[in-house]
Write a protein that binds this DNA or RNA. Structure first.
Lengths: 120, 120
DNA sequence: CAGGATCCAAAGCGATACTG
DNA sequence: CAGTATCGCTTTGGATCCTG
């Protein structure tokens, strides 16, 4: 498939990328990493509700996509730091506005939900 | 939970909103509606790969969240148009930059994937 | 500390058939 | 056209235990 890509098409590479990123946990991880590199268990503690398994999977996917780097330090016990790559940095601004929208308009959304649930 | 909301917290309302929106199909639907109101089957045709069931569910969720409106015209057979609300409009710009990022950086992502898969 | 392996329950989804 | 209903399967996800 040649550019310009049609994101409405199945198998469009852009849509596969979108698939991967349109994920709650991935967004939260990227957001958490934007200030500083963070270690595995710290992420696990900070992002409430994520399981160890899912965090591990999410980190692997993001690393595979080139959005974050995994850096191992030979301490005892071993230390692993996750950090955004340049590519990840280029995405994080978008993630920011997305999360910011959620915070900003969440009252309106909750109101709409209440109205919808009451009406239907 | 009082503002400022902590999006890393479980049960944070902002995170519930994020949950809902961090969905591939929802993003594609919102994107598709930004130019014009669209009917059910048109959406079904345009957004390749979505099933009727999932499209229906997605539309209901977005309507419940106040992001789009469902307008019924008494034609024969009945016509239903989905359109963005003001709230939906306020979100769509963010969705745009998100989708745009995917298109712009997808080559880098695919390259990173190939590298990762080859290395590991 | 940083995960991998396993088990199991629950949710999600596609396909199909049907309705007003 | 615009959906709803049902079925069966696949996937996901949490919980738990284990390792270097």
């Amino acid at each position: 498939m040649a550019p310009p890509y049609n994101i409405y098409e199945d198998q469009c590479p852009a849509r596969q990328v979108l698939d991967r990123l349109a994920d709650k946990w991935a967004l939260l991880v990227l957001d958490r990493l934007q200030k500083e590199p963070v270690r595995f268990n710290q992420l696990h503690r900070d992002i409430k509700g994520i399981s160890q398994k899912v965090l591990s999977q999410t980190l692997k996917k993001l690393e595979r996509d080139g959005l974050l780097s995994r850096c191992v330090f030979a301490t005892v016990p071993v230390t692993v730091e996750y950090a955004l790559t340049d590519l990840g940095q280029s995405l994080v601004q978008t993630v920011n506005t997305f999360a910011h929208w959620a915070e900003l308009h969440m009252d309106a959304v909750l109101l709409a939900q209440a109205r919808y649930d009451g009406t239907v």
